[in-house]
Computed example of a mutant assay.
Amino acid sequence: MATMKSVQTGTAGQIAVVDVERPRPGPKDVLVRIRACGICGTDVTFLRMGGMPARAHLGGALVPVALGHEPAGEIVEVGAGVTGLKAGDRVVVNPQDAPTGIIGCGGRYGGMSEYLLIENAVPGRSVAVFPDTVPFDVASLNEPMAVALHCVNRSGAQPSEKVAVFGAGPIGLGAAIWLKLRGVAHVTVVDVLPDRLRTALAVGADAVINSAEEDAAARLTELHGQSANALGRPRPGTDVYIDAAGAAAVFDTVVGAAKWGARLVMVAVQKKSAEIDLGGMLRSELTLIASQGYPTEIFEVTPQLIEHHARFARLISHRVPVTEADHAFELALTPGAAEKVVVTFDA
Rank of each mutant, 00 (worst) to 15 (best):
A347I: 03
V189A: 03
G124A: 12
A337T: 00
V78K: 06
V208R: 11
D326G: 12
L223Y: 04
G124H: 10
T296G: 03
G106R: 05
E275H: 11
P64T: 14
D19C: 15
G279T: 09
G279D: 09
P234W: 01
P236M: 07
G261S: 09
L305P: 03
D97Q: 02
E324R: 14
G68K: 04
H69G: 09
I316A: 07
T296C: 07
G256L: 02
M52H: 06
I177Y: 05
E70S: 02
V20M: 11
V63K: 07
G26Q: 11
L85E: 01
E339Q: 08
F329E: 14
Q304K: 13
H327F: 15
R90W: 01
V127I: 15
I34D: 06
R24W: 11
G104E: 04
I306M: 07
S211A: 14
D89A: 03
L149T: 07
T344P: 02
E70Q: 08
G41E: 02
G26S: 14
V7A: 14
S211Y: 03
D346M: 04
R198C: 10
A347F: 02
G256D: 01
K259R: 13
D191Q: 05
L282Q: 12
G204Y: 13
D277P: 00
L220E: 00
V208C: 05
R283C: 06
F136G: 13
A80K: 15
R33P: 01
L181C: 02
P236T: 03
G246E: 14
R33T: 04
G59C: 01
G256V: 00
E285D: 15
G107D: 14
F299D: 01
R48E: 05
Y241V: 06
T344S: 10
I171V: 14
S126N: 12
A337V: 03
A16C: 13
G232P: 04
V65K: 11
A66T: 00
E324I: 15
P321L: 15
C105G: 05
F345G: 06
V342I: 14
I316H: 04
P170T: 15
V255D: 00
R263W: 15
E222H: 10
P234I: 01
D326H: 13
L333Y: 03
V18L: 14
S155E: 10
V147Q: 05
P234Q: 04
N142G: 11
V192Y: 02
L149G: 07
K180V: 04
G280Q: 03
L117N: 08
